[in-house]
């Protein structure tokens, strides 16, 4: 009992601390700029969440650290880029419906294509090295080389410009606070994905089995569930989310380039180390922390932006080595 009270107290303290930390940048930033930065930070955090949640859940269930996740992210962006290219009329059309339609088609195409790529990756490569972390990292790193080079073969080695669908471009001016439209879209997408993931994991039988598998794979197998099918499915979902993240991020940053996965994979690693491997909620919290600090620090001390997240990661590793939301293991 005492322990649970302590834990609850601890939780409240953490939330209070988080709020204080969140407001801390106000010392150096004008409130209006602060709001703009906060929205930017949340939007970036939501996009990172899309990448990190896949890494996290694949690790949690399958005990596989997927270094190829960044390459899948880039593939998602490029598939979306191709859809935009062929339906450019709809992208630049002054019609909300057409803009939404092309955005939707691009999302579906990117997610389905990359999910299939994920299935191939899992079946052909990753499956051979279950249970051996060293070989997993090596082999998924090898897969990254191949996937990134294939992008260069199919789409060429140069950066390409991504077009924002017209409706999403520009910003709203709400009481002098500048709110970019696309950032709001990103936040909505991230929140929806989180809600759907939570719903599946908590309310469906399949989700319950996945959560059980995160705790004890062998037991789930011994209960008669085909864990390998589950692995493939989860890998495909993780790949699909990475693709969604890649597409959304490419519109956010207005470009696609073959190596784009590397940077975001790093962000994803930092996020899952902060949040705790295996936890979807941990990924969300970690991603928001990374997104917000990155934006605040980039505004206040631009040169330190790259390092601050690594610093946070190191601090978390020191005080809570398993991350904020460690999974059951």
């Amino acid at each position: 009992m005492a322990e649970s009270i302590l834990r609850r107290w601890n939780q409240e303290l953490t939330i209070a601390g988080a709020i204080v930390l969140l407001l801390l940048p106000l010392i150096g930033i004008q409130p209006k700029t602060y709001l703009t930065l906060t929205i930017a930070g949340i939007a970036m955090g939501m996009l990172l969440f899309l990448v990190a949640s896949g890494v996290s859940i694949i690790f949690g269930l399958m005990d596989v650290l997927n270094f190829a996740h960044g390459a899948l992210f880039a593939w998602g962006a490029y598939v979306g880029f191709t859809v935009f290219k062929y339906l450019m009329k709809w992208v630049v059309a002054d019609s909300v419906l057409q803009n939404l339609a092309v955005f939707f088609i691009a999302i579906v195409a990117a997610m389905v294509a990359v999910a299939l790529l994920g299935v191939v990756l899992e079946r052909v490569i990753v499956r051979r090295v279950y249970g051996n972390h060293l070989f997993q990292i090596l082999i998924t790193f090898g897969a990254t080389i191949v996937l990134v080079e294939l992008i260069r073969v199919f789409w060429g080695p140069n950066d390409e410009t991504m077009t924002v669908p017209l409706t999403f471009a520009g910003n709203w001016d709400i009481m002098d606070v500048i709110v970019y439209r696309y950032r709001v879209i990103c936040i909505v997408i991230g929140a929806m994905v989180y809600a759907v993931l939570q719903l599946i994991l908590k309310k469906t039988k399949l989700g319950t089995i996945v959560r059980a598998g995160v705790e004890d794979r062998d037991m789930v197998q011994a209960m008669g569930h085909n864990i390998y099918l589950l692995f493939t499915g989860v890998f495909a979902v993780g790949a699909g989310l990475a693709a969604l993240g890649g597409l959304a991020m490419s519109i956010f940053s207005l470009q696609v380039y073959p190596d784009m996965g590397g940077t975001y994979l790093l962000f994803a690693f930092i996020v899952v180390i902060i949040g705790g491997l295996g936890s979807v909620t941990g990924s969300l919290v970690g991603a928001l922390i990374v997104g917000l600090t990155y934006n605040y620090v980039a505004y206040l001390v631009p040169w330190a932006a790259a390092g601050v997240n690594i610093l946070i990661m190191i601090i978390i590793l020191l005080i809570r080595p398993t991350g904020l939301f460690a999974a059951g293991k």
Binding site: K205, T208, R211, A212, V214, E215, M219, H225
Partner: peptide, 18 residues
């Protein structure tokens, strides 16, 4: 025992029911 400790008793039983 292989209990899924993060799951409720009900969820443990549900996972078990094929």
């Amino acid at each position: 025992m292989g209990i899924f400790s993060e799951l409720t008793v009900e969820e443990n039983m549900r996972v078990a029911m094929l």
